[in-house]
Structures are given as C-alpha cells and as structure tokens.
C-alpha cells in the first residue's frame, strides 16, 4: 500500500499537466455542446445523414490507413530491430525524416510525384507500362498514399520497440523445436509484439481521425473527413456548440473503437 502511494507523487506533474491541458479543455468543450441546456446539437450531429456519413467515411479511411501502415510498418520495424546497427540507423533516418518536414511540404511533394504528369506516371508511360496516366492523385488512392506516408513512423517505432524487447533466444527456441518461419512469426513474434502493434495501430488510427490538410489536397476535394466539418463549424460558421457536439461524438466513437480493439487484442492467456 505504502509503495503504491509513494509511487503517485512523481507522476503528479504529469497528472496536473494532463488535467490542465487535456481534461479541462475536453470538459470545456463538452460544456459548449450543451450550452443551450438541450441536446439539440447532438440531435443534429447524429440525426442528419451528412455528419454520420462523414464520420463513417472518416473511420473507414482511418482504418484503411492503419491497415496499410501496419502492413508496411511491421516488416520495416521488424527489419530495423533485427538488422545490423548501420542499417537500423539508416532505417531510422528514412522513417523519421517525414516527421521533420511539414505536412504541407510532404503533401506537395506527393502531388509532384503522383500527378497526371508527375514523376510516377511519366516513368510508367516512358517504360510503356501504360499509355494513359493512372489516376493516383485527387482521389482516394492519393489520400491513402499521403496519409500512410505521414503516419508510418507512428507505426514503425512502437513495433520496433516491441521487437527489440523480445529475447532472441525465444524465436530461436521455437525454430529448434520444429517451427517453420511462418509459424514462428504467427505463434511467437506476433503475440509477443502485439503490444507494439496495438500501440502503433491506436496512434495511427487516432491521428488519422484528425487529418484534413492531406485529404483535402490529395483527395481532390472528394474525400471529406470529420475534421474538415468541425473546422468549418469553428472557423466559418462560428457555431462552436455544434463543433463541440461533433467533436464529442468523434471522441466517443474513438473511445468505443479503442475499447473494442483492446478487447480483441488482449494477449492470449493460459489455454
């Protein structure tokens, strides 16, 4: 008992910080949404097809982005954690580089690469692979590529950490006991790095939900995410109660998804 109580004090500054910079604004925001003493703004957010559809779209995009980040990020994080220090450093530089450039710059770079007359299409056409440019930009594909690029580091780093934490003797033991690489991966690596995978997925998913610059620029305007609508309510319509209600709905939905995901990825216990 004593030790748990004394363990509380060092965490106090962090708790106060969270309280002031996270909890207080959230409560304030929730306050805005019921300012008028009614739940009318919630009724509008949940009742009008537009907002539910955009919310659904947003989750769909976030889910896909998370999936692609996982598919790319797991092998990358795994390789970085198991290769020589030189290649690990190179990997880190390339993975972290996007974090040091602004989202806008990265997005414009993709526009240069993916456009009708962009680098990719010119290469494909010169190589004779296609005669007409492939639409990579100003559609869903463009949004996916751009967002996956921006968010990949958030997937790679926790997975890298999780892989590094596994005692290399454990997969070796599995191999010695007759497991093929495929089975070592699914029976040993996957469950032992699930924490990292979960952390990476949650990070990428939640960050995806708040995106709007990248989808607006790379999606040709067709891909609408909830953050765009919230921003419109804050900056254009000046309807803060409604913006708050939309944010609250997004927050609640995010928590729901998080809880669900946690339930599913609970590390397997005694069988």
């Amino acid at each position: 008992m004593f030790s748990s109580r004394s363990g509380f004090w060092p965490a106090l500054p962090a708790l106060i910080l969270l309280l002031v910079f996270f909890l207080f604004p959230v409560v304030r925001m929730l306050g805005f949404s019921v300012e008028a003493g009614t739940l009318d703004w919630y009724a509008k957010a949940l009742g009008e097809g537009l907002y539910l559809r955009v919310l659904w779209n947003t989750f769909e995009i976030a889910l896909l982005v998370t999936l692609f980040c996982l598919l790319l990020g797991y092998p990358l994080g795994f390789l970085m954690a198991t290769t020589t220090p030189f290649w690990a450093t190179m990997g880190f530089i390339f993975v972290l580089l996007p974090l040091w450039t602004s989202v806008l710059v990265r997005t414009y770079a993709w526009m240069v690469l993916l456009g009708r007359n962009g680098v990719f299409n010119r290469m494909l056409m010169e190589a004779g692979i296609t005669s007409d440019p492939i639409p990579l930009l100003h559609n869903f594909t463009g949004v996916l590529i751009g967002m996956v690029h921006v968010l990949l580091p958030y997937m790679v780093l926790p997975i890298y950490g999780a892989v590094r934490k596994v005692d290399p003797a454990i997969p070796a033991a599995a191999a010695g006991l007759g497991a093929s690489n495929w089975r070592i991966f699914w029976r040993v690596w996957m469950p032992l790095t699930l924490n990292g995978v979960f952390a990476g997925c949650v990070l990428v998913f939640v960050l995806s939900l708040g995106f709007y610059i990248t989808p607006a620029l790379l999606g040709g305007g067709r891909v609408i995410m909830i953050a765009v609508l919230i921003e419109q309510q804050v900056r254009e319509a000046l309807n803060w109660p409604f913006a708050a209600a939309l944010s609250a709905v997004l927050l609640a939905a995010t928590f729901a998804v998080y809880t669900l995901a946690q339930r599913f990825t609970q590390p397997e216990t005694a069988r």
Binding site: N57, G221, L229
Partner: peptide, 14 residues
C-alpha cells in the same frame, strides 16, 4: 445563409 450553403455543399460533395 453561409452555414446552410456549406451543409448543402458538403452533402452534395458526398
């Protein structure tokens, strides 16, 4: 009418 126009626009886009 800006708010109304924006809502209709978003819905039309979708």
């Amino acid at each position: 009418n800006g708010t109304k126009a924006a809502e209709l626009w978003n819905a039309w886009m979708l």
